[in-house]
Simulated assay, not measured.
Amino acid sequence: MTVTRRGFLGITAATLATTSAATSPAAASPVATRSAAPPGGGTPSRTLYLGTYTSSPGGGSGIGIATYEANGKISATGVLSGVEDPSFLVTRGRHLYAVNEQRAGGVTAIAIDAPGKLRILNRQPNQGSAPCHLTIAGDYLLSANYGSGDLAVHPIRSDGSLGQQTDLVKHKGTTPHAHQVLQAGKYVLAVDLGTDSIYTYTLADGKLLLRHQTTLKTGAGPRHLAFHPSGRYAYVANELDSTITVCRYDNGRLTPTNTVSTIPPGSPQNYPGEVITSPDGRFVYLTNRGHNSIAVFATSAAGSALSLVSTPSCGGDWPRHCALDPSGRLMFVSNQRSNNVTTFAVAHRTGGLTQTSSFSIPTPVCVSV
């Protein structure tokens, strides 16, 4: 498979765009936003940061900033411009980090001076192509490069800005496409759609060392994984054959145990996107792009098996990403092609989803709560 497959799967021209000049701190002024406190007191709203594509026709102009109420209704409060193609975001404390998903990829560090008030610290190239995911591991920011099939490592300075890259590790194979990187205890896991593999690394002094490689079914196309709260099982969303694989996890090693479909029989062509677990581990949620639904799975008591419960509509077209709010009672779904983020109320007992609102924004591809 080649990078053009990413365009076929609905990923915009952002992966082929030329990287703009790095944004300097002097050029990045703080964004003015409306207060999140409701008039006359009451429960304050919470802040959302929204990843978009800026280089696609009709795309966004940077990182969207919004608030949401207790009922899930979203209101726009501003945009941080000057960040190119911020298709995936992650926060830690008073800092936000974004990929720049372009041919010459990069990562951007942003200060959160107050909820909804953002200021660019700096941008660093990551020597890879089309970074689409990142994670924080200790004092390092790791990014996964889909186009070049490698992982980049940048140190995080004491002020939250990013230092020069300390490592770049390429996955071996004909067409590697690193799609996710995440920390699992003392290990770093990387999911690669092109090699049908999940790689286990250790990270020390800014360097990654490969410890293990788990290979899934040929052509499955693993995209993302999420852990059961126990840490004993992981659920892998397979983009190319529309399945989800349960893996037993122990000391950095994943062992596939069973695989189920993410859509009912007779469904249209479909490509799973994001996968997440409920805080109590009783349910797993997965976005179906094509079927345009959210697959709701019930887990076994220990999390070792999944059963498909329902596939409610995502409320839009091409649901690339989803996230739960800290309470676990609300879910936000980024519908890339219909330019909206839908909010769902989550039923604690059944795991069921009920859409409560829809918010318009150009090419939403990530929600950071």
Rank of each mutant, 00 (worst) to 15 (best):
G41N: 15
S45E: 08
S45A: 14
R46W: 06
T54W: 03
E69L: 11
T33N: 06
E84V: 14
R46I: 05
A76V: 00
F88I: 12
S45G: 08
S35K: 04
R92H: 14
G60C: 09
L50H: 01
I65N: 06
R46P: 01
L50M: 04
G60E: 12
P44D: 14
V90K: 14
S29T: 11
G40F: 00
G42P: 03
I65D: 04
L48M: 01
G59E: 13
D85A: 07
G82Q: 03
A70S: 13
A28Q: 10
T33I: 12
G93S: 13
P57S: 11
T67K: 03
T77Y: 04
P86I: 03
P38C: 11
G59C: 08
S87A: 12
R34Y: 09
A28D: 05
A66E: 05
T77C: 06
S56A: 15
S87N: 08
Y68D: 02
S56E: 11
I74P: 06
D85N: 15
G78P: 04
T54Q: 05
G82I: 01
A28G: 14
P86Q: 02
G59A: 13
R92M: 13
A76Q: 06
T47Q: 11
E69N: 12
I63A: 03
T54Y: 01
Y49D: 02
V83S: 07
A37V: 15
G42I: 02
G64L: 06
V83N: 05
S81G: 11
A37T: 14
S35C: 09
A28M: 09
P30K: 07
T52E: 12
S87M: 05
P39L: 14
G60Y: 00
G72R: 04
N71I: 00
A70C: 05
Y68Q: 03
L48E: 02
N71V: 00
E84H: 10
T77R: 05
N71F: 00
R34F: 12
A37Y: 12
S81A: 13
A76D: 02
L89Y: 06
P57E: 10
I63W: 03
P44T: 08
G93M: 15
G62I: 07
G41Q: 14
